[in-house]
């Protein structure tokens, strides 16, 4: 795959707040890349620097190997879908979508053809003469996407585009976005704070926090192999336990030693261990080395969320089997369920 966009050591301050502290990132052709992180992590700022609405204090934005840092937004080969759509309220659907083509003074027939094609792509055939302010949120979203895509950008930037939609339409739009991306075959850079959205749509997820990239990887990597406590706790729910790496493939916590699949951390090093709640099984206490009492059971639809209190901490377990409160239980997991990572603040 070809490298399309390259961010080199971007930094940005707003007044005296450091928003970006050195972002390095490669974006490839046809990739669906998601910038994921809590609000204030710098993901939107990064997107706006790529679009040209903000200027980085230092660092470079390369597009196809050429530095575009100094180009104004209207000269960049990217288009944006905005958080609240930013449709032009004084124009109808057709004119909104045709805006970019009209600015470029494209041929009238061509404009009509392209806009109709876009309306078909986003499933809004026949909506051309509608007033955009009277459309539903989902429909406005589709217009915004069509308005950006009709210009045939090499990269589409999407700034939390589904944030304003309700949960059901949101799910549906996620699938449609993915479909559209496959159909037009261009790069999407997608910003969201919703980890589920990021995992289900992306080829690559970039987890950000406090102006720094925490981890770059495929959704499965990010979920299964979080590189630090932040990623582990931000992506899904986790039991994070302070531990000691005794030697390769052997880690100790809660007064026991467990076999694991991790190595290369050295000997007797302080580390942290991630145990995903769905990887823990509730067993007979006699067959387990970690034991405790069920304190809380919450029905979550597909599974129960069970909190088990041991002498040292409380574990969260996701299981489809019901267990009653107050029962003495044991917790069991295999070596491959243990994920060892460096503790926060020690790189």
């Amino acid at each position: 795959m070809n490298k399309l966009i390259e961010l080199k050591n971007l930094t940005k301050n707003f007044e005296d707040q450091q928003v970006l502290r050195g972002i390095d990132l490669n974006v490839y052709e046809n990739e669906f890349l998601t910038l994921l992180g809590p609000s204030g992590c710098g993901k939107t700022t990064t997107l706006r620097i790529i679009a040209g609405f903000e200027e980085a204090d230092s660092g470079q934005v390369l597009f196809d190997g050429k530095d575009i840092s100094a180009l104004p937004p209207y000269k960049r080969p990217v288009n944006t879908v905005f958080q609240k759509y930013a449709l032009f309220p004084h124009m109808n659907v057709f004119d909104n979508i045709a805006f970019g083509l009209n600015i470029r003074k494209a041929d009238k027939q061509e404009i009509r053809r392209k806009v109709e094609a876009m309306l078909a792509l986003v499933g809004l055939e026949g909506f051309g003469s509608r007033d955009v302010t009277l459309l539903s949120g989902g429909q406005q979203q589709r217009v915004a996407i069509a308005r950006a895509l009709v210009n045939e950008p090499k990269v589409l930037l999407l700034d939390e585009p589904l944030g304003a939609l309700d949960a059901r339409i949101r799910k549906q739009m996620q699938m449609e976005l993915k479909k559209i991306q496959r159909e037009v075959g261009i790069t999407f850079i997608y910003v969201t704070h919703d980890q589920e959205e990021a995992l289900s749509m992306s080829d690559t997820v970039v987890v950000m926090n406090e102006g720094m990239i925490q981890q770059i990887g495929s959704p499965t990597d990010i979920y299964n192999e979080p590189e630090n406590r932040f990623v582990a706790s931000f992506i899904g729910e986790s039991n994070i336990v302070e531990a000691t790496m005794i030697e390769d493939y052997l880690v100790g916590f809660d007064g026991c030693r467990f076999e694991c699949v991790d190595r290369g951390f050295g000997e007797m090093e302080p580390v942290e261990v991630v145990l995903r709640p769905e990887d823990l099984d509730i067993v007979d206490p006699e067959n387990a080395r970690i034991r405790g009492t069920v304190r809380q059971v919450t029905f979550k639809g597909v599974h129960y969320e069970i909190l088990v209190e041991t002498d040292i901490r409380t574990y969260m377990i996701h299981t489809t089997d019901y267990t009653e409160i107050g029962k003495h239980v044991g917790l069991d997991f295999g070596p491959e369920d243990i994920h060892v990572m460096w503790p926060m603040g020690s790189y």
Binding site: P72, P73, Y74, F82, Q83, F99, G100, A148
Partner: peptide, 15 residues
């Protein structure tokens, strides 16, 4: 919406 002007520029309009 402060993004309206940005949206226009994003679509190729000069300021």
């Amino acid at each position: 919406d402060p993004n309206l002007a940005n949206a226009a520029m994003d679509l190729g309009a000069t300021p």
